[in-house]
Design a protein around this nucleic acid. Structure first.
Lengths: 219, 219
DNA sequence: ACCTGAACACCGTTCAAGT
DNA sequence: ACCTGAACACCGTTCAAGT
């Protein structure tokens, strides 16, 4: 006799999709086990059939976001290639701000983090860095990328998705305009420049200068 | 007639001390309002006399940790001065790993963050960077410092304080030794170097190379 | 194998009441 | 002004039970 089909043909992907949607809509706290279960239409404890605990679900969510597409074409030299791969990583994470705290809260130990590290190691080797410097340089680049993303996502007040860049620039400008000029003259003077540091431009500027330093080359 | 003294002469500092102690002992989740209240011997809702909500308490905790001692002596040129101030910031944050997620989760908008930014702006100005480059460079340095701290703290598995460096190096070595050599040849080859990247040394290495790049100077 | 109902031990926060 | 008791609406997780 054949078995009756299960009432819910639930999959891990379905659960992760629901959790990510909640995260995007409501911020880091929104992706509760109970909320995710409700979103896919099961009882809270049904989630434990697929994930051992909440940490496992979060790990899977992060891992999926770090699964960058394999590079197909070379855009240029090793420097622009490093820029391309880190920009893609940044784009993905900034698109899902709620996942960023989950990424920053646990070790960068997954398969896709290894893939990324291996790729950066190869590119820095191409750049003429000896193996030790390439390894340390790879770590420094990851530090810069994750730090950029952390600061960018932290700047968004509410939960959910990042507002468009023009709004974020206006918000920064408003915040910086309240810096007391007497106590912070340099900050106040630089406020105009600093307000526009939203998005990929400031990221690219800093990364290129870091690569300059790693390559021992004048910017 | 004189008023009777309050039963508990509670202060904000007392509450923050208790919350920090819980954070250091039990990790980010340990500093609950209820736990903190119990630690100082009051009912949970008594905390709301001093802090509007949990976010306010966390903000105060972060702000207190960013209150770096004012520089008294100049250690050398602008580069070593940048290194000194960021090392001090890193030292403080790494000493209280539980606070790091709280710092990374909200905008860097407090008074002490402004003080730090103003100081870095001045130092980069000394280094000959024009105001715009000094402003962008300051942001890049903050990105690198916070990224370093995030990665370092995230690498610690359990809650509470960071274990001694020798233990952390052993743990990294063990984790890296399990990287499949076939799929990740460069990572496996560099595992020996990478295992020892705990602590201030790798931080200083990366920071100096970033400053090299910002200053347009060969390392 | 997969799901549910019910429960346990927690949360942050609010409100009315006490001193 | 400051604190408490009690309650509300949440959590993650476990366990026994159902199919």
């Amino acid at each position: 006799v054949s078995e009756p089909p299960p009432r819910h043909a639930l999959t891990e992907t379905e659960i992760l999709d629901a959790a990510l949607a909640l995260l995007d809509a409501g911020g880091p706290a929104a992706a509760s086990i109970r909320g995710t279960a409700a979103a896919v239409g099961v009882a809270p404890n049904a989630v434990y059939t697929y994930f051992a605990d909440k940490a496992s679900l979060e790990r899977a969510l992060v891992e999926r976001l770090l699964d960058l597409p394999a590079p197909t074409t070379r855009s240029g030299d090793w420097r622009s290639e490093v820029e391309a791969v880190t920009l893609e990583l940044r784009r993905r994470l900034v698109a899902h701000p709620g996942v960023v705290p989950l990424l920053l809260g646990r070790p960068l130990a997954g398969t896709h983090a290894l893939v990324l590290g291996e790729r950066l190691l190869g590119l820095l080797g191409e750049g003429g860095l000896d193996p030790a410097a390439a390894a340390r340089g790879t770590y420094a680049i990851m530090v810069f990328v994750l730090g950029s993303i952390a600061l960018e996502v932290a700047d968004v007040p509410g939960a959910g998705a990042l507002p468009p860049e023009t709004e974020r620039i206006d918000a920064r400008r408003a915040a910086l305009s309240e810096v007391p000029v007497g106590a912070f003259p340099r900050t106040a003077a630089a406020a105009g420049v600093m307000a526009t540091w939203v998005g990929t431009e400031q990221f690219g500027w800093g990364l290129r200068h870091l690569l300059d330093g790693l390559a021992g080359r004048r910017p």
